[in-house]
């Protein structure tokens, strides 16, 4: 899986792509944010471009929740690919956290700045720690330590569940956007990832259209997931 392409698919309004390369951070296509009305943040030497810290922090927090769900799904369904995806995403969150920390640190000029910045550091760190914990969960699968089938079944049946299914040809979901699907299924679910042509698309946007053979990972109430699965798997 090409790391950069899957990230680009995932990035929505913030348009933030961070790629760590030779310890330099390269930012593509995002607007810079000025801290307290001052000049945009700049890093020394190899690093040239400012970071949209707000977008990065939002991404870190969003992703951490997503990663946790995916890691649980990987254990419940004993799915190695999902588990590997979790590890990839976790290292992305790590990079983002480092970037945020670096940029914020450089902007601190006095004690007031420091105490005001503390919550941002903490919020980023918590999300980072959640991702780390999720990675540990995913490693359970990667080490081949699968849970007994009966336990996995019991976990599949809970109130809020994660479901995985494939969109079949002629199903009602094929060709419809995520947004449209909410019209007939309701809003009690969330699509957390879709696998299409060997690539994972994490957290697809509302405009995303389902296609035949897509593998959909969804989280929601048992009812909503059941309905969504019915629309996705059964022919019209």
């Amino acid at each position: 899986m090409e790391e950069e392409t899957s990230m680009q698919l995932r990035v929505r309004k913030a348009q933030l792509v961070i790629k760590a390369e030779n310890n330099a951070l390269i930012r593509e296509g995002c607007s810079c944010v000025s801290y307290r009305g001052g000049p945009p943040l700049r890093l020394e030497s190899n690093v040239t471009q400012p970071l949209n810290v707000r977008a990065a922090l939002k991404e870190i927090i969003d992703l951490s929740g997503l990663i946790l769900d995916l890691s649980f799904a990987s254990v419940i369904y004993d799915n190695t690919e999902l588990a590997k995806e979790v590890l990839d995403l976790e290292s992305h969150v790590d990079e983002l956290t480092n970037a945020v920390t670096t940029h914020m640190s450089l902007a601190i000029r006095d004690k007031d700045d420091a105490s005001e910045s503390l919550p941002v550091f903490k919020a980023a760190n918590v999300a980072d720690q959640i991702s780390d914990a999720a990675a540990e969960i995913a490693k359970i699968v990667l080490r081949g330590m699968s849970l007994d089938t009966r336990l996995r079944e019991s976990l599949m049946e809970s109130d809020e569940i994660v479901g995985i299914f494939r969109i079949s040809r002629e199903s009602r979901l094929a060709g419809h956007s995520l947004e449209n699907s909410r019209i007939f299924v309701g809003v009690g679910f969330d699509i957390i990832a879709v696998k299409r042509d060997f690539q994972w698309i994490i957290n697809p946007p509302d405009e995303f259209e389902f296609q035949t053979t897509d593998v959909v990972v969804t989280r929601g109430s048992a009812d909503a997931v059941k309905i969504l699965r019915a629309f996705g798997e059964e022919p019209k």
């Binding site: 005001e116 919550p119 903490k122 957290n203």
Partner: peptide, 25 residues
């Protein structure tokens, strides 16, 4: 640990104004 640093006098850093952003959760 995150909760432990919340205090009433804590000024919300502009970057943390995430309530306005389109967070997933």
């Amino acid at each position: 640990k995150l909760a432990s640093i919340v205090s009433r006098e804590l000024e919300t850093h502009p970057v943390l104004d995430l309530a306005e952003e389109e967070m997933e959760e």
